[in-house]
Amino acid sequence: MITLGAGVALTVLAAGMLTVAGALVARYRAGNAADSGALAGALFAFDGEVAACAAAGRLVGENGAWLVACAVAGPIVTVSVDVRTSSGLTVHATARAGPVMAG
């Protein structure tokens, strides 16, 4: 009986660890997708919000994420993305990109 209880406990612990690991991987994927989407959008910021957000959306999708929001304020592009884990959790990330100001 103790062996069965220990086996169940180990199984539950392993499932929990896999869920946490999946969430961590999704967090990094979401961050990378948001960063690359914002950078892609910033390349087209002066062509307007439609062009900038289309470029951001393409790169976000190629990184396995969904574009949730995209905004252009002058040369600055802000992108928000979601990534779903295999366990059904949703991870959110936001990034902003624009020109570097010399100072």
Rank of each mutant, 00 (worst) to 15 (best):
G88P: 04
V72R: 05
V20M: 10
A55Y: 00
A56M: 06
L89Q: 15
G98W: 10
A40V: 06
G98S: 11
W66Q: 12
A15D: 02
M101Q: 15
M1A: 15
V12K: 02
A93R: 05
L67R: 03
R29S: 10
S87T: 12
G48S: 04
F44R: 13
S36G: 10
R29L: 11
S36W: 08
P99F: 05
A51D: 12
R96T: 14
A56R: 02
V12I: 09
R58P: 01
R84I: 06
G88I: 04
A65L: 14
P75M: 11
G61M: 05
V77G: 02
I76G: 09
G31V: 08
M101L: 15
D35G: 08
V8M: 06
F44H: 12
L10W: 03
R96W: 05
A52C: 08
S87N: 12
G41Y: 03
G41R: 00
M101R: 15
T90Y: 13
V12A: 08
M17F: 11
F46A: 13
T78A: 07
V25N: 10
A102T: 13
G41L: 01
V72N: 01
G88V: 04
V77N: 01
I2F: 14
A56G: 07
S86F: 06
L13P: 02
V79F: 05
R58H: 14
T94I: 11
R84A: 15
G5I: 09
T11N: 01
P75C: 09
R84W: 11
D82L: 10
V20Q: 10
A40I: 06
A55S: 08
A9S: 05
V79D: 00
T19E: 09
S80G: 14
L10D: 01
G41T: 06
M17R: 06
A30P: 03
A71N: 11
L4D: 10
G57R: 06
R27L: 13
L24N: 13
A71K: 09
L4Q: 12
H92R: 15
V100N: 09
T11H: 01
D35R: 09
A56E: 04
I76P: 05
M1S: 15
V81D: 02
A40K: 03
C53D: 03
A6Q: 01
R29Q: 13
G16K: 04
A23W: 06
A71S: 14
